[in-house]
Design a protein around this nucleic acid. Structure first.
Lengths: 110, 110
DNA sequence: ATTTTATATCGTAATATTGCAATATAAAAA
DNA sequence: TTTTTATATTGCAATATTACGATATAAAAT
């Protein structure tokens, strides 16, 4: 089928899945890492940093934006992209939650 | 094309992408959350917890195992699945790294 | 006004993912 | 030994993703 049965899962589970899925591609990780490295909004530089064509990069940027992981604003000729903190905080919270659980675990098996 | 150009990215980026991609489905998040909730290895219960057929659940378990997020050992008739900590720690590290970066950021734009 | 620069969208081909019915496997129970 | 129980694998249809060439858009520079 190819279509995820989102109806049967909680909103939280679906929300996290969308975020994780958006991160689940090396090009999109590279974009996030680059935005962190330059430590600022950047205008028109991302395409040159990636080993992919301009339309493909544009598509990845769109996906990251849709997932709420980055944001972009028009800056004259070009577009200024940067990290969208709330999105990253949300998924980070999930792993902190997991870590807290694991810390309490007695490791009695496996 | 549909095939990710993994060659052009770093090993770390590809590794993280595989982990995030594995988490990027609500059913697989539900599995991880369930394994955390029961706080132990569980033998044969996961299928009943999910709104999906047995073959589909089996496939999701396989993907989580391949990504290194869970592990399973044969326990007589059934199979005992549990969280694989190193996998989760690895992806958690990525978000901690991101958080550290964001904390230093001056928020001078966006 | 024309050209350049930066980015997005469209169309399309190749490949991947999701989901399930049918079937296989293999240990446990009867 | 037959049946039951638990899980995996196969095969397939529906849909999604990835990538890029061609083209569109729109502001900046000439």
């Amino acid at each position: 089928m190819g279509a995820t049965k989102t109806d049967h899962f909680t909103e939280s589970q679906n929300e996290l899945a969308v975020l994780a899925k958006a991160i689940g591609h090396p090009a999109r990780i590279a974009i996030i890492e680059y935005l962190l490295k330059v430590d600022a909004c950047i205008c028109g530089d991302i395409v040159n940093e990636l080993p992919l064509s301009q339309p493909t990069v544009s598509q990845h940027l769109k996906e990251l934006k849709n997932a709420g992981l980055i944001k972009g604003s028009i800056e004259g000729n070009s577009i200024c992209y940067c990290i969208n903190e709330p999105g990253l905080e949300k998924i980070k919270g999930f792993f902190e939650h997991i870590s807290a659980h694991l810390a309490k675990k007695k490791n009695e098996c496996c």
